[in-house]
Structures are given as structure tokens and as C-alpha cells.
Amino acid sequence: MGAVAEPAIKVEDLWWKYEGRKDWALKGVNLTIERGEFVGIVGPNESGKTTLVMAMNGLIPNNYRGVMKGRVVSVGMDTREHTTAEIARRVGFVFSDPESQFLTMTVEEELAFGLENMGLPVEEIRDRIRWAMEITRLDEEFLEKPPYELSGGQKQRVAIAAVLAMKPDVIILDEPTSMLDPIGKSEVFDVLVQLRRSYNATIIVVEHRLEDIAYLADKMILLYYGEVLRVAPPREFFDNIPFLLKHYVYPPEIMIAVHRLREEGLYDGPIPLRFEEGVKIIEEVLRA
């Protein structure tokens, strides 16, 4: 019998309470994320999404004070037994604010920083920078520029490239588009699409833009005030629209429209994940 592949992330009965807080931010979370999966995490504000992903890369409990129960094993490393820096070599993390994650004064230094920490040979660093820039569609002329002089979308692409260059097994993106304008958001989603196609890693995205994440994800997770309420493939996840709305998760308008058609008995198929899919369903209903 072949060996069973170890999951990318395993969260076992995780409880976390920040120091000085009365309430638990995470309440008995159990999760298994398999290797190569693209996972979307959604939930209302203050539901513990950022806390959960920070627990996955070791920032919690290593960099924050609080009470932790249960355990998190990220790519085989128990987050309580390894430092964040050790875990970071295999679990990359992109923060929501692109400005806050820049550590150096030029894009090139930014991309090289993690690779230098890994002690890679110069040639390999050069190749990886080129590769990461290609995937994130960053122009070579950016290399000499200070990252904080770029546009919002470009900044976040630099942040993603800096993590991607380290070729981690898992990439976590915590609301990567929350601080960007519509153009910046679509630039970042283009990169996510590209990552999905060409980079075989586990990708975990905390995101509010459900219309963009729905068709990319293999699995969606609904976190609601510290508890995981639903884990399902997108088709199944969005099938119960009233349940999502009840928990302050607002699916794209096209999904709600098709759901109404279902309620009216005009349509009995699955909820569409893409806008075009939804339009086609509505057209068919109108024709019928």
C-alpha cells in the first residue's frame, strides 16, 4: 500500500484567545487542507479569518501573546515546535497591506530578501527572481525601483512575488485585495489565476470578493465568529445562499439572482460560479 500524503495544513481543535481579551478568537477549529488545494476562506469581519491563517504560518502562537489550545501542523511542522522563520521557508504569507510587508528599498532587494535568508546560491536567486516576476507579470524595470513608489496592484504583486520566489509549499494570502482599487484588485486576481494554472502549491486566500474566488477555489471555508461553519467545494458551498446570507456572507449578485429563480421554481440546476454561467442560465430561463 502506498504512503498516504501528509496534508498541507492540519488544524486540530484549535482555540486561541489574544492576551487581554475575554473572548476566544478561534473556538475549536478543525480543518484539513490537502496539498495542491486552492482554498478560499470567507466570513464577516472579526470572525477570526486572519487569526486562523496566522496560526497556519506560525505567527500565532510565536509572535503574538495569548492562550492556545489544540495544535496546527503546517507541512509537517507543529507551529509550537518551530519558529515562524523556520515555517516561513515552506509556508509563505502575503499580508493585506502591501506597504507593511516591504522590508527593503528596491523591488530587487525585496524579491531577494527571503532567498538570501534561505542561503540559496546567487545563480538560483537570480533565476527565481526572474521566474517570480514572470508569474506576477512584473516588468524588469521595476527591479531598481523602491516598492513603495509603485501602484497598489503593483505593490501587492511585488509582495506576492517576494513570497512566491521562496517556492513555498503553501502560500497564504490574507485579504490581498482589501486595500486596492478595482484595477489593483483585478491585477492581483490575474496573478492568482496564473498561480492556479502554473504553480502547483497549496494556496489559501482570505477574501471578500467572492465572485473572483468562487471559480478558482477547490474548497471554501466559512468562518463565523471563531467557528468553522461550512467546508465544501464552491458549487456545494454556494448552493445554500440563505445560509450564507444569514452569516453575513454576501454571494455575488448573479448567484443571488439564480437562487431567486430557483426559489420561484423556474430553475433547478446548480448555482453558477461565474458571471457568464449565470447569464447563460438566465437567458435559458427567459427563453423557456
Binding site: G58, L59, T83, E86, N117, V163
Partner: peptide, 19 residues
């Protein structure tokens, strides 16, 4: 947080010489 998340330690990681 950003430093740690990019694998940086001022003391250097065991067995890794920074390039």
C-alpha cells in the same frame, strides 16, 4: 511579522549561511 514571515532571524537560521 514580515521579517519572520520571510524566514529572517537576526541570529541566522541553524545550518544556513545567508547569501
Amino acid at each position: 511579522n514580515a521579517l519572520d514571515s520571510r524566514g529572517f532571524k537576526f541570529t541566522g537560521l541553524k545550518g544556513h549561511k545567508r547569501t
